[in-house]
Amino acid sequence: MSLELAANQGTAPIADQVDDSPLAIRGMTVSYGQKPVVFSVDMTVTQGAMTAIVGPNGAGKSTLLKAALGIVKPLSGQSMIYGQSLKSQRHRIAYVPQRASVDWDFPTRVIDVVLMGLYRELGLLRRIRPRHHDKAMACLDRVGMTDFAERQIGQLSGGQQQRVFLARALAQEADLYLLDEPFAGVDAATEKAIISVLKGLRDEGKTVVAVHHDLSTVNEYFDRVFMINTRKIAEGSVAEAFTAANLEKTYGGRLVTGQIDQLDLAAG
């Protein structure tokens, strides 16, 4: 499982030009058991844009993100953050895991979850001071959840849970935001709230990458798209990469032509 390819040992510099792309992934291969979920994938995220990672279920979308962040150990490959090693740039990344990945009956309040975003600032022993508290409240305000600060997280609806996770990411004051299915199972009001926050981040010059399920909103929400089905299928601006041909390649027979026709695709 954690065997590394001999050919990829060592820290050979990434060959292509990555300059200072917020996130550059090269030759990433991840497998659970003997079956690769992500195979030799390259990805170069554009600074200041919103990128959707799109692909069918089990295509390795989430795994690619997790491997890029070192949450899952890749078989081979590496990721560079702003042209430097992941380790030295972690403080510039905020990660929003899938909502379903945690136990929402955990004994903690909304405000405590947001304060987790300040972990780097607080360290092991520093006390939580009013200014930390204010910062967390400001983040909750950006996602419209201030009224819920003192609630136990189990009392939230799915959409509210997702907004709390986003507030925690905002508290990290990162430059690169990586979100795993932020719109999965949330109500329409939350979806609107989240997308407006994300667009706000982009307008501040931050970079946003989100695993995305809903093909019908790719056009409306995102600038760029990365299509994956174990291997990389396409990468580029929505206008040039989000085409019927690429969707066909990504989803194979899983999308009927009728579905593709309904999407508001760029001419291509």
């Binding site: 990344i93 895991p97 990945s101 955990f106």
Partner: peptide, 12 residues
């Protein structure tokens, strides 16, 4: 780590 191991790992 008890609440959200993935987030913890992403924080290094």
């Amino acid at each position: 780590v008890a609440f959200d191991p993935e987030f913890a790992a992403a924080n290094g």
